[in-house]
Design a protein around this nucleic acid. Structure first.
Lengths: 337, 337
DNA sequence: CTGAAAGCGCTAACAG
DNA sequence: CTGTTAGCGCTTTCAG
């Protein structure tokens, strides 16, 4: 492997000059030509580790996601990679699997390896001191320490869900919420949902289950406890043979799907009798539609904005505290036309 | 950020001793104690870049995949990350998006950044010289240069597909193949399919379309050209109102799904009239089953074996040339019980 | 077993 | 505009 020294020797200029050429600084035209020729000839490339060591910047960005079994996150990773490539940066991935200690140790490692910044999707608490001096942008959660948060417009999501159910003919709405933290951005969906119902004087109800976190719904199939919880709640929504609601807003597509499966088993027709709207709206691969009608949050927009904010933070040391991304309704067969 | 020097100063031993402690080499018990105390006190961690620069090994592994929009690959990445974490290694991801030049430049970068090895899923040709001295393990493709290949047992996959269709009552089989390279491991599926049919004297036919590559089926929805090609082929399989086959083995789940959609539109019942088996068998998230019945290849086994082979290659400079992973049939509703 | 010292490949300051 | 030089933080000889 050729080094900068070899290039210098080969092209007959000094080490510093070569460095300048590599880094696009000004040198005399013919020096540049010679250096470039040698670079090509020796098939030279910078050693990123040496550069990083010296310059204490690495062009590496770490991305932390909870799982790869959720298409929403993988779509996000995909878009992040696109943005990073554009900027000539590398992407390191950490899959936290909801393991707090793994996140902790990963961030520590990231600090020491001097990645330039971290984009994190995490539902764990993070020790603020860990984040000191480490540019950190998060999705959906606030971590103080001037760490910006990028998030969908969750409030509008809830609002649009209620509105869509209503406009498509439902008048007795249920919001079924599962999720652990009530201080997060996603929790605002409930308020949006409520506000629309109040505005339009629509009858509604909210079921909140705060004991279930992402883990229960992110994986291939719901945990047993999750499923039986859903079943239990829905059983209570029957008045005799009749289901009390004709429109349901679920906190995730997956939950929406479980609800649908349960109701279908109970001979309730979807969407004729009951309409269901979930959240995320990730198309099933090869099918092109989500598993239920949904409020779609754009993984690519989130990634793009997330990176924009992260770069801003890295360069200026400061960035907007919250960036909201618009959402929209998408059909998935569980709502009427 | 504390450095090794700070630790040496704080603990009153020399730099070299600290280094030994960090790297688990033998030092006197009380020296080790002192050093460890200082490390904790100063919250010291090794600077990976400095280490890599000096030691010319990085503990970074690069993974190249074509896309993140295919669950099979993301599952694989997920498992790879698991294996890497176990070994204390980091994972760099490159999404090639079927762009040859991107792969090329990525491998070059990987060489210069001295990643310890590369695991690559790629359908492009790769310049052999690029791979010189770079431990490289690939999935499904051979790249010579003693680069090992990890692959599902594709031959058996085709064999099992034919067998399953047959045993579940089909006797007039079609193998519908799309894919560009005929010298790859996956191409062996066709032979397996044929061999079963020959053995059992079952009537069969094979449609091969070599002009379509991964890109046409990997994305959220098939390309227009792909869909119309499928439609055209299937139209030729009708004898009047009747479809000529009662069992189809498709080269991917996605293709199987497109075939299914088309036949359903033609009022053919699936699986009553025609059974369909695809390949990959990745469960749809939240649903738990693949979009069609399928020959399942295990992303996690592939990842595990891939990493095992890669580490072997890194450590010994040599490893087995081909590693085959077993496959199995999974139900996805397009075959009878 | 420990400490001193060389140097990995590079950047950035400085003097020329 | 160019060459020289001092390290970045670490590992690894090599004496002691």
């Amino acid at each position: 492997m050729a080094t900068i020294k070899d290039v210098a020797k080969d092209s007959g200029v000094s080490l510093g000059t070569v460095s300048k050429v590599i880094n696009g600084l000004h040198v005399r035209e013919d020096s540049r030509k010679k250096v470039e020729a040698s670079i090509k000839k020796l098939n030279y490339n910078v050693n990123l580790y040496a550069r990083s060591l010296k310059a204490s910047r690495t062009n590496d960005i770490a991305v932390i996601i909870p799982t790869m079994e959720n298409s929403f996150f993988t779509l996000m990773v995909d878009s992040i990679e696109k943005e990073l490539t554009k900027k000539g940066k590398r992407m390191l991935i950490c899959i936290s699997r909801n393991d707090d200690s793994k996140i902790r140790s990963y961030i520590e490692m990231a600090r020491n390896s001097k990645v330039d910044g971290i984009f994190g999707v995490t539902y764990s608490e993070i020790d603020k001191t860990l984040l000191d001096n480490m540019p950190f942008v998060s999705f959906d959660r606030h971590f103080g320490n001037n760490s910006p948060c990028v998030s969908s417009d969750n409030y509008m999501g809830g609002y649009i869900a209620a509105q869509t159910l209503h406009e498509k003919g439902s008048s007795n709405l249920l919001c079924f919420w599962t999720g652990s933290d009530t201080d997060s951005e996603p929790y605002k969906r409930i308020q949006g949902f409520k506000d629309y119902c109040e505005e339009k004087k629509i009858s509604y109800n909210v079921i909140e289950h705060l004991n279930f976190n992402q883990t229960d719904t992110d994986m291939m199939s719901a945990s047993k406890g999750f499923k039986s919880m859903v079943k239990g709640e829905l059983e209570n929504c029957f008045a005799g043979k009749a289901f009390k609601y004709d429109g349901i807003f679920a906190s995730s597509d997956h939950l929406g799907y479980i609800i649908k499966e349960y109701l279908v088993k109970k001979k309730i027709r979807i969407p004729e009798d009951v309409q269901i709207i979930g959240f995320d709206g990730v198309p099933v691969r090869g099918v092109g539609k989500p598993i239920v009608s949904s409020i779609h949050q754009s993984a690519s927009s989130i990634a793009r904005e997330g990176m924009r904010v992260l770069f801003e933070l890295i360069e200026n040391g400061t960035a907007p505290n919250l960036v909201k991304i618009p959402v929209k309704f998408v059909d998935g067969g569980t709502t009427r036309n």
